[in-house]
């Protein structure tokens, strides 16, 4: 796990491509439905107060995710 970074530790304003989704099947399924698919570009555009949720830009729309969900997205 330590070799790959996840969306949770992606520094702000850097764009990366999704390599893989892993974790709780329900979370992963919902992430896919929101547009997080392998090959798509993601960018962290901000964080809410207290560090969570993370604001992520994905294919033109912005989605707010908790860190736990962001950790399912491997880059």
């Amino acid at each position: 796990m330590s070799t790959t970074t996840t969306l949770a530790d992606l520094p702000p304003e850097t764009t990366k491509t999704i390599a893989n989704l892993a974790g709780d099947p329900v979370l992963v399924a919902r992430l896919r439905e929101l547009g997080f698919i392998v090959g798509a570009d993601v960018k962290v555009v901000g964080r809410a107060p207290f560090g969570e949720p993370v604001l992520v830009e994905i294919r033109g729309s912005t989605v707010a995710l908790r860190k736990a969900e962001a950790r399912c997205v491997h880059l």
């Binding site: 992430l31 949720p53 604001l55 729309s61 912005t62 989605v63 707010a64 995710l65 908790r66 969900e69």
Partner: peptide, 9 residues
């Protein structure tokens, strides 16, 4: 129960 928060803005 599993709790998650994913909200499209």
């Amino acid at each position: 129960d599993r709790s998650f928060f994913m909200l499209e803005l």
